[in-house]
């Protein structure tokens, strides 16, 4: 579905010229406008689950997820309003209360995207009661670990593993608040036959749910700049095989 018509629309009053097949989030980023998100990851299929990138569109009371909404000619998008900030803080409230995010790593190295957003939006405390679930930590993999307490179910790991590495080791089991990330048939990660130990999931994870073992706190930084490159190269390869 390649559409290439050029249209113009506005984000926060700024005129934007865009191709119709780019999402509002992508276009905002290209134009230096920051829209908060936790589940969006460049180069993998958007998920639309975190609801942090919701934006307002003039003429409708409905909110739209910027990561999966395409602009239309003349559209006027607002990314920062009082209402949106309230909702975004509430989303973070819910996430912080859902599992356990009491973490000594991100406080000192500032590398957690969840914490970063809380900081950015000026959160001072969590407004809803903590749910305090009892969740395990999987340290069976020789290089990496998985702490379910830190997981926000953004499924970045699932998508990276499936779409870029091609292993599909990760998926989500269960549903609702009981949903959890699983490797293969809900096995210890170290025993999952499909895992190639490539570590892309760890780099894609926005929190400390997936981490590298044996790193000092300062070294626990995530980097995923290489993903768009891999996705691009993959596209090229798939393109050849079609011919």
């Amino acid at each position: 579905m390649k559409r290439s018509q050029i249209i113009t629309f506005k984000i926060d009053g700024q005129d934007i010229a865009a191709r119709e097949d780019e999402t509002i989030l992508e276009l905002a980023r290209q134009n230096g406008i920051r829209i908060p998100t936790l589940c969006y990851l460049e180069s993998v299929t958007p998920w639309g689950g975190c609801r942090l990138c919701m934006v307002e569109v003039k003429g409708t009371t409905r909110l739209f997820p910027a990561c999966m909404t395409y602009p239309q000619e003349g559209m006027e998008v607002s990314t920062v309003t009082e209402q949106l900030t309230t909702y975004r803080k509430q989303v973070l409230d819910l996430l912080f209360a859902e599992r356990n995010h009491v973490c000594s790593v991100c406080v000192s190295n500032g590398a957690c995207e969840l914490q970063g957003l809380a900081y950015e939006l000026g959160m001072t405390h969590v407004g809803v009661p903590y749910l305090n679930p009892s969740l395990p930590l999987d340290a069976s993999h020789p290089y990496f670990g998985l702490d379910h307490n830190r997981c926000i179910l953004c499924t970045r790991c699932v998508r990276v593993c499936d779409e870029i590495e091609g292993a599909h080791t990760w998926d989500v089991m269960g549903r609702g608040v009981d949903a959890r990330i699983v490797a293969d048939l809900n096995q210890p990660w170290g025993e999952a036959i499909s895992c190639t130990s490539c570590g892309k999931c760890v780099q894609a994870c926005p929190t400390g749910a997936l981490f590298e073992k044996g790193k000092s706190v300062a070294e626990m930084q995530k980097r995923h700049e290489f993903l768009p490159y891999l996705a691009l190269m993959r596209e090229g390869r798939d393109g050849d095989s079609e011919q």
Binding site: H168, T169, M173, G174, R175, V182, A183, D184, L185, S194
Partner: peptide, 12 residues
């Protein structure tokens, strides 16, 4: 079908 996907569907 990937194992984790089968598990995900079975538990959904």
């Amino acid at each position: 079908t990937p194992l984790s996907q089968v598990y995900g569907v079975s538990t959904f």
